[in-house]
């Protein structure tokens, strides 16, 4: 965070609150709310990075994370003795992150020529195909059953299964990746990516290789999502086709919309709100109607605050126009193919 003192102080206070939070909270709040918010936030962050800076809304981020989860399970310790390779711990994590990054690049190469809603569609198709593949394939995905009994490692006397340790691990990953995205956006690569988002033709004629930039952005998103996937499988202890279904992919999109895609913090704000609704809606309404409630909230946000909760904060504090925040698109309708999620900000 840069600029005037106020956001800096807000950020510091916020971070301090996150660090001190486990001292006051119950295990439920630490793990189910705290750690899970960070995990969902990291996966959504990979989408916000792609959509906010690259103008590419990818529905394949959850399955990218899912692939990393499967790799952790297949090459690590889980409960099915007939399947998988029990590599020494650590190796499966490296493989998982490599697989997620490679998958991200592959998705990027397939989708590189698509813009706007075509990008949504092709990545949605990839996500659905991945789900069916996972459900049908025995050899690697263990079909419908998936893998269970996966646990975070204990190392150097630090048991990552312990709620507080696991929370700090998730927090560390979340904060680091957040900082990574903010920093990446200011590199020449990040600036070029934002240029491509706003006007691919001009960037092309300026000599930038649009396709390579877009594919690399997908690779970075795959890397981020893969870390989320590793944490997610440790959190849930299992991974199965149910973890990579279309509904979950849409949830990640919802999180990004709720929080807003104008700034990376939106991913975490959205994840927190989504997670709170998911866990506490049951106390207000019949759980059976949970989806109606989340749908209405989502619709309200799309209708009344198109840049999500972060957009509200922006509107309240209009003094920052610095580089860590992608500039708002000013043209209300940048043509039919506009890939930008924030097109036409105000009704």
């Amino acid at each position: 965070m840069t600029g005037s003192l106020s956001p800096k102080w807000t950020g510091t206070a916020f971070l301090a609150a996150l660090v001190l939070f486990p001292l006051f909270a119950t295990p439920f709040w630490i793990v189910q709310i705290g750690a899970q918010t960070m995990i969902l936030g990291i996966i959504a962050l990979s989408l916000v990075w792609l959509a906010g800076y690259g103008g590419m809304v990818s529905m394949a981020q959850l399955v990218t994370a899912g692939l990393a989860s499967y790799v952790v399970a297949y090459f690590g310790v889980q409960s099915d003795p007939a399947l998988g390779l029990r590599l020494p711990w650590g190796l499966n994590i490296v493989l998982a992150i490599a697989a997620g990054t490679a998958f991200g690049i592959a998705v990027g190469m397939i989708a590189v020529r698509c813009f706007g809603i075509y990008m949504i569609m092709i990545t949605l198709a990839i996500a659905v195909a991945f789900f069916y593949l996972a459900r049908q394939n025995m050899g690697f995905f263990n079909a419908y059953n998936g893998f269970h009994g996966i646990r975070a490692p204990a190392l150097f006397g630090l048991n990552l299964r312990d709620p507080i340790a696991f929370y700090y691990l998730c927090l560390l990953c979340g904060v680091t990746l957040f900082g990574f995205v903010v920093a990446a956006a200011r590199t020449p690569f990040g600036l070029a990516l934002q240029g491509i988002r706003d006007n691919p033709r001009r960037m092309q004629s300026l000599g930038y290789n649009v396709a390579v930039h877009r594919v690399l952005a997908f690779g970075i998103a795959g890397f981020i999502a893969a870390i989320g996937g590793v944490l997610r499988v440790w959190y849930a202890g299992s991974v199965s086709p149910g973890s990579v279904g279309v509904g979950s992919s849409i949830s990640i999109l919802m999180i990004a919309i709720l929080g807003g895609m104008t700034h990376p913090i939106g991913a975490f704000v959205g994840a927190l709100l989504f997670n709170l609704i998911q866990n506490f809606a049951i106390d207000f309404i019949d759980r059976e109607r949970f989806n109606t409630m989340i749908g209405i909230i989502l619709l309200a946000i799309i209708l009344f605050m198109p840049s999500g909760l972060v957009g509200i904060a922006d509107r309240l504090r209009q003094d920052d126009k610095r580089g860590d925040r992608p500039p708002r698109q000013t043209a209300p309708n940048a043509g039919k193919k506009s890939p930008n999620i924030r097109e036409g900000n105000h009704p």
């Binding site: 119950t26 295990p27 439920f28 793990v31 189910q32 899970q36 998936g146 269970h148 849930a236 202890g237 299992s238 199965s240 149910g242 973890s243 279904g245 509904g247 866990n279 049951i282 759980r287 059976e288 949970f290």
Partner: peptide
Amino acid sequence: FTGPTNATPDSAINAARRLIEQ
């Protein structure tokens, strides 16, 4: 206390955790 799930293992674990811890 009801722990509603959507038939996926992830939702079952989430619901069970809530039942136990909350």
